[in-house]
Computed example of a mutant assay.
Amino acid sequence: MSEQLISFIRDYFRSEEFIPLHAPVFSGKENAYVADTITSTFVSSVGAYVDRFEQDVASYTDAPRAIATVNGTAALHIALKLAGVKPGDLVITQPLTFVATCNAIAYCGAEPLFIDVDLHTLGLSPTALESWLSENAQLDCEGVCRTKEDHQAIRACVPMHTFGHPADLDGLVSISKRWNLALVEDAAESLGSFYKGQHTGTFGELGTLSFNGNKIMTTGGGGMILANQELGAQAKHLTTTAKKPHAYEYIHDQVGYNYRMPNLNAALGCAQLEQLEQFIAAKRVLAESYRDFFHGSDLQFFTEPEHCRSNYWLNAVICQDKVQRDALLKSTNDKGVMTRPVWALMNNLAMYQGCRRGDLSNSEWLEERVVNLPSSVLQGTA
């Protein structure tokens, strides 16, 4: 199967050279917009393209407010602070995620609490979440969710939309409300993905996006916080060093963060966003081609959950076992076709090994089987 897959991928991407996992495409007005920032001399954190990019992302996602940041991790850090996460709190998330999800929790002085994922979404499981909370948590007299064992506050719930596939948001929203948990969506990978017609990142109190170089569209490095108007205003203040508006005085009213997105990056983002729907269309054509290729084989191609439109940021195939996974990874990479395993589970990393967790059977099963396939946008396929 690996030789046939390598041939299929090389034929699809029309290349005998090295094929990366996900490469950016610059085919719009990127050069013109970035050159415009240089001409204007406003290349840093103040400039028209920052304002425009925030407005354009808010419009695309239908979020009340969007606040640009230097990267997605910074966006999630501020979102968690605004959600009320404090040192010593627990924050529920999934072990099958990129390390930035947990690092942002740790930046707040809080600790991840790992709950399993669903096999049909790869995202945080409402069933596993409800089961763990019912057995291990309770609401105190003030309505704060706490562990039964030692009364530690469980402040927030952070699902991550894995590879751009939306998690089961109906279930997660319902459970978060009943248990008084702030829902903060890590939508870093899911720009352009919709759950029942609504954009990911807009279901909770706050959501975050990433525009890293390997994402479906890029600003080089960058992120975005999605929020309502009130929290959005607070986010803007915190990410701009908490400086109070004044014509010339430097007055800062709390500990703030220099998390601003430079105008250069925002200019790139404006040009990329203009092409986003074309990128998604091309990626969905690729996903359909992969699905057809794997049909009837012993490898299962992962398709978008029901009632969702996924951006198919990274295509994934599920192997029968770790032996098959490792063989596929070796054969493809040896032949210059880049494939990758899913991330090592967060609860197995040295800094998070001691964190609380529920039963993680699905995550452990997936860790041994998932392989990501080349997923770059091929122009002219949309």
Rank of each mutant, 00 (worst) to 15 (best):
T219M: 12
L329N: 05
D334Y: 06
F8E: 02
K236C: 06
R146K: 12
P95L: 10
P24V: 14
A74C: 13
F114C: 09
A79M: 05
R10P: 01
D334S: 09
E16C: 09
I318E: 06
H246P: 04
T381H: 07
A327T: 13
D359V: 14
S40D: 15
C108M: 10
I154L: 05
Q254S: 12
N228Q: 05
R178W: 09
Y312S: 14
M217P: 00
S174D: 13
E304P: 09
V342T: 14
A350Y: 10
K244W: 10
L183N: 02
R284W: 03
R10S: 04
Q300M: 15
A100D: 07
L172K: 06
A156D: 07
G164F: 04
S2G: 12
F301Q: 03
R357P: 04
F53L: 15
F114S: 09
M351T: 12
Y12L: 00
E249W: 01
P20M: 07
T162H: 12
S193Q: 08
G336S: 10
Y49R: 08
K322Y: 13
N214V: 11
D89W: 05
P112R: 01
L314D: 08
V371S: 08
I6E: 07
A63S: 15
E189W: 08
N311W: 08
L345E: 09
G222I: 04
N212Q: 13
E367I: 04
Q234S: 15
Q275V: 01
S176I: 09
R146V: 15
Q254R: 10
Q198D: 02
A83V: 05
